[in-house]
Nucleic acid binder design. Structure first.
Lengths: 133, 133
DNA sequence: CGCGACATGTAATGATATTACATTGCGAAG
DNA sequence: CTTCGCAATGTAATATCATTACATGTCGCG
């Protein structure tokens, strides 16, 4: 039942490949523009593909950027909670996960009777390379 | 140099009061609509006030909602890192902070030479009340 | 075949945010 | 007191992000 890369439709494949080839997050409209040559005409084509890809865990949405990235670790499914470090200079995104953080946020939820569905952690700042410059 | 409530301009005060009276996050355009009677005509009036209030730490932006809330603890300045639990049913937002989480994310940043400027933590889900129903 | 489920195509619109430029109010320097 | 400069404000236009509504296509299966 977990969708694999094989199950992707043409549009989903095109969108995922576009994100995978990009060196950073892309907005839905940027993806659209890059796929005009493949017949994409409307935002909805992109949003629909993204919706599925997000569900499959192959793509992440960066809320603070209103943009999307291909998952850096598409193989290890069931990665608990993911955090992103986003460089405001070069746009590079580093994806990581921390068991302790997951545990602490889980504990807070349990203590407060909160049923967590989705957790967003995004650190905006400057990566090592750019901070050096 | 830390701005106090006294220093706020008329527009900033109106926007902050609107958020403080609201029972949940408001979008910039909702704030605008609520302040039409006070002479607000354009989005920029709201965005400019919000920009300052965010800088003062009196207001937070919820990235996953594209909306804003008044800070729940406007007195304790220098609150390290803040997390939000957002109920998707009733819209209530719970603001909390966790030293261990801050520490872990800080450690990751240090290990990776990343200079963090701003960290966003948002948990979407269902609050105790709504989960019960 | 004919139906159902899902993916797709297209247009229009809604929602969020910024750019550009004009104006006003007010304190400090001269 | 006047002029300068700065910050806040006002207004219009536009850019950017996302969804709703409706029509069409594709393909497996009874």
């Amino acid at each position: 039942m977990n969708a694999t890369h094989q199950d992707l439709t043409r549009n989903q494949t095109l969108v995922l490949d576009t994100l995978a080839k990009a060196d950073g997050p892309l907005s839905a409209y940027t993806i659209l523009d890059r796929l005009r040559g493949d017949g994409f005409r409307a935002p909805l084509q992109v949003y629909r593909a993204l919706e599925k890809l997000l569900g499959f865990g192959l793509v992440h949405r960066l809320e603070s950027l209103n943009a999307f990235v291909a998952c850096a670790h598409p193989h290890c499914h069931a990665h608990g909670l993911i955090a992103f470090a986003i460089c405001e200079d070069c746009g590079q995104v580093d994806e990581f996960s921390d068991a302790v953080v997951r545990e602490r946020l889980g504990a807070w939820s349990a203590d407060n009777g909160f049923k967590a569905e989705k957790t967003t952690i995004e650190i905006r700042g400057h990566c090592a390379n750019c901070a050096a410059a």
